[in-house]
Write a protein that binds this DNA or RNA. Structure first.
Length: 199
DNA sequence: CCCTGATTCGC
DNA sequence: GCGAATCAGG
């Protein structure tokens, strides 16, 4: 894969949106996050409006001779609306990290197929019991901290501060941890012969 | 250990 | 120019 003009544009946009290099690399495909970062630097757009983790390991150079460098061409092509996207979904979302994506080119977003499991399984009482335990052990990650490997099951009320994501490690290809996957992908078959315990 | 971006340097 | 390896930090 090479850095075609299109790919560079996607890279620029996603980087401007605050996507991490690894995410960009995955979306683009055929490149690693290192490649993305390298390209970003070569393009000159390194620091964006917020770099949570990154520190110049090179010692801070003494700024003695400071030739006025105003030739920074401010690319004001995008007003950058960037409203705070409120994910107020009571139901689990698939890829919350990709919610704030403005309309873009039809890039292939390889999302999880997430087919409904036709296997006739009922939510075992164990799974439900695990949920409570799991939620206690939830890492309480914020939206930004979610990765492909963290459970994206929302816990709490998005409208309050009592809201976070499970964040426990999830199986490859699955957006949730094992416990949440169990309850997330229920077929539709419910137990029908449940007369004794169902009130 | 997971992740992040930054930098270096051989290609 | 490119990106893997490496570094440095959260």
């Amino acid at each position: 894969m090479s850095w075609t003009d299109e790919r560079v544009e996607i890279l620029k946009q996603m980087w401007a949106e605050g996507k991490s290099a690894s995410v960009i690399a995955k979306e683009l495909g055929g490149v690693t996050r290192n490649a993305v970062i390298g390209k970003v630097h070569r393009l000159g757009l390194s620091n964006r409006t917020a770099a949570p983790a990154a520190a110049p390991k090179t010692a801070p150079e003494p700024e003695a001779k400071a030739p006025p460098p105003p030739p920074r061409e401010p690319e004001a092509k995008k007003p950058e609306p960037a409203p705070a996207p409120q994910a107020a979904a009571p139901k689990p979302v698939e890829k919350p990290a990709n919610l704030p994506i403005p309309p873009r080119k039809p890039i292939i977003t390889a999302g999880q197929p997430l087919p409904p499991q036709p296997s006739a399984n009922e939510i075992s009482a164990e799974a439900l019991a695990n949920l409570a335990e799991v939620e206690k052990r939830a890492r309480k990650l914020t939206l930004m901290q979610l990765t492909e490997r963290t459970c994206k099951w929302p816990i709490g009320d998005p409208a309050t501060e009592e809201f976070w994501f499970c964040g426990l490690p999830c199986q490859p290809g699955k957006p949730y941890c094992e416990a949440h996957t169990a309850v997330a992908f229920q077929p539709m078959s419910s137990r029908r012969d449940r007369r004794s315990s169902s009130r």
